[in-house]
Design a protein around this nucleic acid. Structure first.
Lengths: 255, 255
DNA sequence: ATACTTATTGTACTTATTACAATATTTAAC
DNA sequence: GTTAAATATTGTAATAAGTACAATAAGTAT
């Protein structure tokens, strides 16, 4: 099962177009952009590298190389499961990042080698997006030192092309919500107010919604149930809580 | 630059969890689903393998392994350029296919080895979609024996997971057109009738459009210019031709 | 001249989107 | 306890977008 590339290549030394060097072999990783919503801002779940090298930033997107018998979806689920303890998170592949330049930084490559005990020349990654209730307790039994939520619009500089991956992820959330509106409730707690939902929409779509018109939108969602329960401990009129009803949603979508 | 995996691995023989065998190395390809529109049907551009092996089907999606210093976008453009002679085709990455099972068929693997002079254990592919005027003369200076348009709803059985790739591509066209309506005119000749455009919409969206309402839709597109020219040689009232005006489109989109 | 085929066009109705502000409820401050 | 401050809740009118529906026009074939 092992491939000795050197052996193959030796046969072709001196050939003009050595086919064994023209086509690349690469490692493949998945990286997950996990978004959460708090204080009217989107946050990204970042992990600290276990073996930071000097001069390199410590925070990155959670990810992993693919195992031999694993496809990318499985690897992404594994990463999130290790990270959060949650088995069935909503997860969506959105783009493969394949530039040879993404591994141009020697610090990143040094970290890779230490982290995976493996010399890696090239690395492509398949980026996933996931949505998570930010107040959810993460049972971080994972290999990472720390896990933190970092505001989407104030991210640290990260290794590889992780900053670019995040910036392309936000568009993906919009198309995901358009396709399957229920997915937005992954970002909210079980009970939430109309204002919270509106602010989340405003954040995701990057525009303001008129308060009264937004209420009509809520009423038009049969799967959004108003509760008797209201906010407590606020210094003003308390707002009604709503909850998302998955069963009604599925019926309304014909599932 | 060469990696001798065997050498690395020898150091770890006997270890319980040998890290050098757990993480995979793979070749990476791009595969292009090029769609064309003719006789009110979508067609897919397929190529015949140069070195078909017995018991394997001959037609497949055009594709290629990635070169060492090439990213997936470049590889996909290279494939289409070799195939059609067209340098700047509209092209969109839509999904990475990574299942270990996709290379389960020995015939496919035998073909790979012959085609690329290389032993390949695993192969992931990054799928692209492209749209092409079907009457465009393809200067097939390519490595393929033949190139043909095959109706989307009557495709041959193809190697790897190419049938699945095509089936997932159609959804992608819809979201592409929603995002950038001009892209649909890549499928039509320079001059086309309202009926041709309507039938193309009906094919892509899988539903009928009322003729009169569709006309309103056309009028609402400022970038769709009616011409004086009309159909000739038809056994009934001849239809007016329209053309797509890219400049007006860009202005109307604020580019 | 007539039949056949496809092209072209308008109106009424329904639904969705937008613009816009006064009143209600609760706590905090005095 | 009165007032101020903060946020919640609610409706109406206008406009735009989408839908349903069929008669007439223009050309070829016989």
């Amino acid at each position: 099962m092992y491939i000795c590339l050197r052996k193959f290549n030796l046969l072709f030394l001196g050939m003009k177009n050595n086919p064994y060097t023209e086509f690349m072999q690469t490692s493949v990783s998945v990286d997950c952009v996990v978004l959460g919503f708090e204080n009217n801002r989107l946050h990204v779940l970042l992990v600290e590298r276990n073996t930071p090298t000097p001069n390199s930033k410590d925070l990155k997107l959670p990810g992993s190389l693919l195992f031999q018998q694993e496809d990318a979806d499985k690897a992404a689920h594994r990463v999130l499961s290790e990270l959060t303890g949650i088995k069935k998170m909503a997860l969506k592949q959105f783009k493969a990042f394949t530039s040879p330049q993404r591994t141009a930084n020697p610090d990143d490559m040094a970290w890779l080698q230490v982290a995976y005990h493996k010399k890696i020349n090239r690395l492509i990654t398949i980026a996933y997006i996931s949505l998570c209730k930010i107040d959810r307790k993460l049972n971080n039994v994972s290999k990472y030192k720390t896990v933190c939520w970092s505001p989407l619009n104030n991210l640290p500089q990260m290794p590889f092309d992780h900053n670019q991956i995040v910036s392309e992820a936000l568009n993906e959330v919009r198309t995901w919500v358009d396709l399957d509106p229920a997915i937005i409730f992954e970002l909210l707690p079980a009970k939430f107010t109309a204002a919270e939902l509106r602010l989340l929409f405003e954040t995701i779509y990057g525009k303001k919604y008129d308060v009264r018109n937004f209420h009509k939108k809520i009423i038009a969602m049969p799967y959004l149930l108003p509760l008797e329960e209201k906010q407590e401990g606020v210094a003003h009129r308390s707002a009604r809580y709503y909850k998302f009803d998955k069963t009604v949603y599925k019926k309304s979508r014909g599932y």
